[in-house]
Every structure is written in C-alpha cells, then in structure tokens.
Design a protein around this nucleic acid. Structure first.
Lengths: 343, 343
DNA sequence: ACAAAATTTTTACGCGTGTAAATTTTGCGC
DNA sequence: GCGCAAAATTTACACGCGTAAAAATTTTGT
C-alpha cells in the first residue's frame, strides 16, 4: 500500500513487471493468464492499490457489466425486499446492479430507461408500473437491451417474464376461507394500475364459481400508490354504509389489507376467526409487515427467493447466449398460504 | 427522428452545421453559446436523436455529475422515503443520483463506497450504519469525495451533518405524555446500532430530570435491523414478566413501537388514552405506517423536507465552492409532535 | 534436447469527448 | 464602413483502456 501513486494501467504494468496488454487481459479474466503471471500481478496489487478506470473500460466495451433494476416504488417494502435479493444475486454473478424506483410515475419510468440505455447495460430487470407504463417506449427499450420483466407482466414485452401465479394465490386463500367458514367477498381498487390485480380478480371469480359460490366484489375509489390509505378509506366507507356483502373479506393485496384492518380497529370491529369476531380478513403478498398487523394477517406469500433467483438466472442465460431467445419465456411460481390470526 | 444514425459528436456536429468543440461546449452549458448557434443545435437534436456518450465524458472530467446516496437499509420505509426526496432534489439540480442500500452490513457499506469512488462522484450523501460503520474507511473516503452525512452523525466525519434534533423529539413526547398523564418509561434496544438512539436515551433522562421525574429505562435484547420483531419479542417478554415500570411507554423509534403494539394486541392489552385502555404508547420518527397501526401511533415526526433539502443544498454549495469548507457544519431540525390514538 | 504449443511482449490504432491555442468569423455600436 | 469584442472554427493533443497483429519468449510433450 505504499510507493508512488499509480495513475493508470501503464504504470501499474510497469511496477508489476508485466506488459500492459497482459495486465488488461488479467483484469478481464484472471484465469486467462499464466499462473506465474497472475502471481506477479496480484503481488503488485497487494502493494499498490490500483483499480482500472471504469469509464475507460466501458467506453471500449460494447456491453458493460452494468445491470439496471427498475421497480415501481422503492418505498414499498415488497419491492425493496425483492430488489435487495435481486441486487445481491447480480453482484454474486459479477455484475454491477443499479437500483431505480419510478415512484409510480410513468414519465419517471421512461426517463430512467432513457438514462439506463446510455450506460450500455448488459441487461435489465424491470417490474413495470403496469397499466400506466408507456408500453411503446418500453418495447423500444427492449429492442436495445436484453430485458426480463418481473412481478407484473406486460404481454409480449421483454425476453421473459418471471412472477407469481396469481391463480395459485387466490385459489388457496379462497379455498381456505370457504373451507373454514363463509366464502369471501373480494376487496379491491376500482382501477388498479397493477395487472396482477386484474388477474387476481378473475381468479377469484373463477374459483368462486368452481366452488359453487356467487362471487361478490367490492371496488373502492382511489388513484395512485397509497394503497394503505385507499384501503382504509374504502373500508371505513363500506363499514359505515354496511355495504360489505359478507363478513369474510379477501383483499387483493396486503397493503390494502393493512388499511382495511386499521379501519376495522378504528370502528371497533374485532377481526379474526374466534368467537366475538365480526370479520375475517385475508389477503395476498405476505408483505413484510403482515406479521405485525393487528391481528396478524393471514395471507398468501410470494416465493421471493424463487422469483428473484429465476429472474436473475434467466437474464444471465440470455446475456451469455448473446442473442435473443426465439420464444418469450414466462415462468410463474405458486404461493404459499400463511395462516395467522386475521382469518 | 429520421436520417442516418448518429454515432458520435463528430457526426452530430456535421449534421447540425456546427463545429464539434462548440457542440461540446453546448452540452456542458447550453447558455455558453450564441443563441443562433443554440437554435441550430437544438433543431438538429429534434431531427436526429443523439446523446453524448456518458463514459467518454466522464473519462475526461475530473469530476462527474454523479452523486452517491447511501443509506443503511432501503427496505426501511423511513429511508426509502427520505432517499426518494433527496434523489429528486439531486435530479432537479442537474446531477445523476444513484441509490445504494447497505442492508445493515458494514462490509457492504465499505464496498459501496469503494465502488462509488471509481465513479468519481461530485459528492456523496451518506446515512451511515452508525456504531458498526468502519469509521476509518469512511474517513478516508471523505478525503477523496465531498460528503454530507445525514440522519445519523459520526463525529467529525464528512464536511457536514444534517439531521433531526433528537432532543426536540424526546422533549416533546415526554412533555406531552407527562402533561396528559403518567410520565413514560423509555423502551429501547440494549445495543442500538444507530447513534440517534443514544442521544434519545440521554434526552429522555435529561427531560425527565427537568420535569422532576425519575427516568425508567427498559432495554431489550436483539441485534440487527429487524426492529419490529425485536420490539415485539421484547414487549411480549416485558408484559409477561410484568416488568414494565409504568403504563405509559415511550419507544425509541416507531419500528420498535410497531412491534410493541403488535404484542399488546396479541396479549389483549388495549392501547390508548381513553377509558379501558391499559397502556399508552408513543414513539419517534413518524414512520410512513405509523398512521395505520392499531391504534394509530402518537409520534414525533421528522421534518423530511427540511432534512432532505438542506442535505442536498449543503452538498451543492460545497461542490460549487470547489474546496472543503473550513468548519464542519452541523444542522439539526426540530420534530413536530403528531397526536394520534395510541397516547 | 528439440519441435510444437501456449503465452507474453511490442507496436500501434481506436473509442468518444474535453480542452487548449491560434485563427477566423460574427455581431454590434458609432 | 470601421474597429473591437465576443464567439466560433481549426488543429491538435489528452484521457485510460481494449484489442489486433506480428514477433519474441516460455512452457510442454516426447
């Protein structure tokens, strides 16, 4: 760690006693040089701390080792959690992931992709905003950069999609609720931005028919990504209007359910499956806070690990194969029912 | 948007009828060229979509327009929220912010800074891990890159610190609780990683003395960043052992309080200030979920806007002045008491 | 020990932009 | 129309590394 400062690879090559092209080769793949050579370089690395200039490297590469990860909302613990896992896996694969949140704003989403393109990324993982996304723009982006979509699917966009099987989620919760009591109504936003919401509604309807029940859907007003607040306001209104068709409620997602439970508490309605409970509430996603709601929330959990590892693996194999795969691959993972106190 | 593809500034200069050095000047500062020249360039930009190669630019600049934002944990909505605001302000100031979360891991924190250095950032905003941070490493980093610390202070590190005034937080909550009922005990982790926790404990002790009460502190076990779980387990234990010294509890932060409330609900203890309530609970931070807990949480709110805008403004002025300021500036913002149902 | 194979060295150019210096052109007031 | 200052152009080099081609060296197999 002493000696004069090393300014570039030229100088580092000199102090390590190896020619610059060979040093360059080493940094691109340490195993591509002879063991004795590698030894000398690594000895020099111990003594002088030199690291190649990342800008000069990337200027000459067609593709960098950068990977972009774009999610709709980093303040949502669900996305924070899954992008953390994805980030980790990219690092382990030797790439440089960068995280971007579009904060529910379609314009910001396109801006992010626009800037991302300049970074010549090897690939991108996108959880798109959904209905509001500028599909045309994303499609154009996908032509330039190998892209895997996750969490929410935009038909035909990207080389692959990895997500959760909404039918499995709803099927399990409806099944459980019906088996242990009254069949649930479905509580959701009127105009959900996320395409998963539409799939969940359809799955609810199908599953209810399958079980011989009439589906009952409660749709509440609200725009944007403040789901808890929207769920809370919708629940307060539904309770006051006595417009809930059943006393078993299946929320489309946990964030709505968090608001729903908050409203129930405020209105003095006891939630749970025991005696003296007015309502049963269940939901989907297994939000990191679902275990701390009052009561703790019965929900269907994403297979975080499988989704994130499969997303990254898929992207890696696309990157390695160099070209685009001929068929767009879609992979869905089933949910795992998590029984807690709310139902 | 038609015409042949533009490969570099040379070609773009040609189609716009301006020399390359002038075009370069334009991209560095559109106002530095004559209006008629700017017009020609912008007309060409309409027709051909060219954007300068970011790697070639940064290679020749001593400093880039990059700004690094490092927080301990992106999955914590508090940090997600404040970094979102900071990110926005950096963008508005014409910089390119990149967000990094160290996930509570000191080694990852140093790795992030290590990689950040290679990006030759114009400046960095760091909310350090705290007690676990590698102070020596961060100090070395600060010698190379203008750095503003926020949220949690490491004495003497960075050019400035911007955060919240912990005394103001605790002072207001203790004051309110004492004024409206029994003086609170203080509920916290035994070995908090975050230095704010220590300041809050001391502020609690001081304020209690000032009001003529004996401070009572409940310290619970637990390591890491799963504060809700730690708070929940600690609360369950304290309730079962009947070791809570008072029936008014002031939690060190909202995430602990979320766990605390969850435990109370599970144990059938009603929380609030009305009749039939067994406990009053208050806390600090105004976590985004504090309004959805059961009951909703009385807490002291950060001045998010002031902290984030002041952090960015401070960094910008340091960057513009080019050098290091002679004195390390510390700026603290007071809390705002938010009264809800829990106390 | 010798030929073949593998690796390294030497040499040289390219990537796309910043920027300095000298020169030419433009804009503008009188 | 003149003269001056401001702006643009021309020319040239720099940044740090990838990489190709040919030559020199080392290693490997027998």
């Amino acid at each position: 760690m002493e000696g004069q400062k090393i300014r570039n690879m030229e100088e580092f090559a000199e102090v390590s006693g190896i020619s610059r092209p060979t040093v360059s080769k080493y940094f691109n793949d340490p195993d591509s040089v002879r063991k004795s050579t590698r030894g000398k370089i690594e000895a020099a690395l111990e003594e002088y701390d030199y690291r190649p200039n990342i800008f000069a490297i990337n200027q000459n590469r067609k593709l960098t080792k950068n990977i972009g990860i774009v999610v709709p909302n980093l303040a949502d613990p669900f996305f924070a959690e899954i992008s953390r896992t994805i980030e980790r896996r990219c690092l382990d694969a030797g790439f440089k992931p960068t995280l971007y949140g579009s904060h529910g704003d379609p314009q910001l989403e396109t801006e992010i992709l626009d800037n991302l393109r300049l970074l010549k990324p090897a690939g991108t993982l996108i959880a798109p905003l959904g209905r509001l996304s500028d599909k045309g723009f994303i499609e154009a982006f996908c032509r330039d950069v190998p892209t895997v979509l996750f969490d929410s699917n935009l038909e035909g966009l990207g080389e692959a999609f990895v997500g959760s099987d909404n039918y499995s989620f709803v099927s399990q919760t409806v099944d459980y609720l019906s088996r242990t009591g009254e069949a649930p109504c479905f509580f959701e936003m009127k105009n959900p931005a996320n395409p998963n919401a539409n799939k969940r509604r359809q799955a609810y309807i199908d599953k209810m028919h399958e079980l011989g029940h009439a589906p009952k859907i409660v749709q509440i007003d609200g725009e944007g990504w403040s789901f808890e607040e929207i769920g809370r306001a919708g629940a307060l209104k539904a309770i006051q209007d006595k417009s809930l068709p059943t006393s078993t409620v299946l929320c489309s997602n946990d964030r709505l359910a968090i608001g729903f439970l908050s409203a129930c508490y405020e209105m003095g309605l006891r939630v749970g499956s025991g005696d003296g409970c007015a309502l049963r509430v269940a939901s989907h996603d297994d939000h990191p806070y679902a275990r701390f709601t009052c009561p703790s929330l019965t929900t269907a959990a994403h297979d975080y690990d499988s989704v994130s590892s499969q997303s990254v693996d898929t992207l890696m194999s696309i990157i390695e194969s160099g070209g685009r795969p001929s068929t767009r691959n879609e992979q869905l993972f089933p949910a795992k029912l998590i029984l807690r106190s709310s139902a």
